[in-house]
Design a protein around this nucleic acid. Structure first.
Lengths: 217, 217
DNA sequence: TATGATCATCTTGTATACAAGTTAGGATTC
DNA sequence: GAATCCTAACTTGTATACAAGATGATCATA
């Protein structure tokens, strides 16, 4: 009844939303019964999930939802930072009007989202859309896809980190500023702002203490 | 007799070296008989290879060695370019002595390799090692790993492209120059040199004509 | 009581039979 | 001869039985 693709996106969502907590066990037979499918296709799904680091497979022991790897988070943030800096500079001064409207619309929605406190879930979705649009406008959607494949740890980290500190407003303002710089063609402004933008305080002991049970040791 | 890991690295090597040509069919049963293993573990290997784009799986039809995707090549080159520019600038002026020796040694070997015309295979290996060392010195080995996972198309393209034009000497000289800039802490020099370094002429019709049978349409 | 071995029962890994889609070639028909 | 349909032979996808390692509880023993 349920196809492999559906099962996969279902599990991905559950893991990314932290509904399935890091360290939880995902047994093949359990999934098999739950989705009324034999173990073989279930294994295919788990294999793929493990390659994308959603799941850690311990042979003959079991499949665990991966713990958040802070090293991976830091590296991915750096990668995003470097890429976006370059992409925004390439857009500076010559951003298509259509794209500009889309981005402005997005930021407006983000603003609404904050005022109405509709939950951070939607905001994060809009945030992703904002960055993705940037990549698209620069002809780098491919690289956005690359980032997505290494996002498991980053997305979960971000979810916890943002919910904790409610920095949403700050982020929205920074986005607004970035867009202004792009329109004005102010590349040095972009450089300076992005320099500390995504350099989130990973090593804040605060975070590690709070979510110790989610983190890879 | 042969383990999954061995089969995988074996197939990877055959594909990267173009011993298995793009478009070649890789049948599960054939591999099964060849390596004396049942289809199940073979399928695991093929699944992973397809996720890393070594292989394209056409359901109920067959598994083909992937054609070289020039779009992917261009994007990966861009990614490398952006990352390395940032990494080298971070190393500029404060590169560890030990690392410097390693890089110089590597360049010397590259030089030898060219003079003795030992075949480009070794040169490309040294080239990879050079860049990898850079990443390592900057604490970005993780990102080198990321690049590797999207390298199938790039590596094969590079192999054909370089063998064809024998630009090896040029590349080696550029590396030498880059290293000098790093030692001197000349970040603008790095910027300028890298700007056109990896921007290989992908869209050279020459290449597409020559290797049409290898290229994804 | 503490300790250690045994074994039942988990888990995933592999082999194999069968289902089902695809394709190419030949027989049939016009 | 040309077109069409059918079939046989591929291919991968799925289900299932069995192999084999890991784990923990239980029971025997010092």
């Amino acid at each position: 009844m349920t196809s492999k693709k559906e099962i996969m996106s279902y599990l991905k969502q559950e893991i990314l939303s932290l509904a399935l907590k890091p360290g939880s066990m995902i047994s093949e037979t359990a999934l098999s019964e739950r989705f009324q499918l034999s173990r073989t296709p279930i294994r295919d799904v788990l294999k793929q999930l493990s390659l994308e680091q959603y799941v850690d497979i311990y042979p003959k022991k079991g499949n665990l939802v991966s713990y958040i790897d802070l090293e991976s988070v830091e590296q991915v943030i750096y990668l995003r930072n470097v890429l976006e800096k370059e992409i925004m500079k390439s857009l500076a001064g010559n951003i298509p009007l259509k794209g500009l409207h889309e981005l402005r619309g997005n930021l407006a929605q983000q603003q609404q989202c904050i005022e109405q406190a509709e939950g951070a879930g939607l905001f994060l979705q809009l945030d992703d859309q904002f960055h993705r649009t940037m990549f698209g406008l620069a002809g780098r959607e491919f690289l956005w896809g690359v980032l997505q494949q290494f996002n498991v740890h980053y997305i979960r980290y971000r979810k916890l980190h943002m919910l904790k500190d409610e920095k949403l407003a700050t982020i929205q303002q920074e986005h607004q500023q970035l867009l202004d710089y792009i329109v004005q063609g102010d590349t040095t402004g972009i450089d300076e702002l992005l320099h500390h933008h995504l350099r989130a305080d990973i090593d804040s002991m605060n975070f590690q203490e709070h979510f110790a049970t989610y983190i890879k040791k």
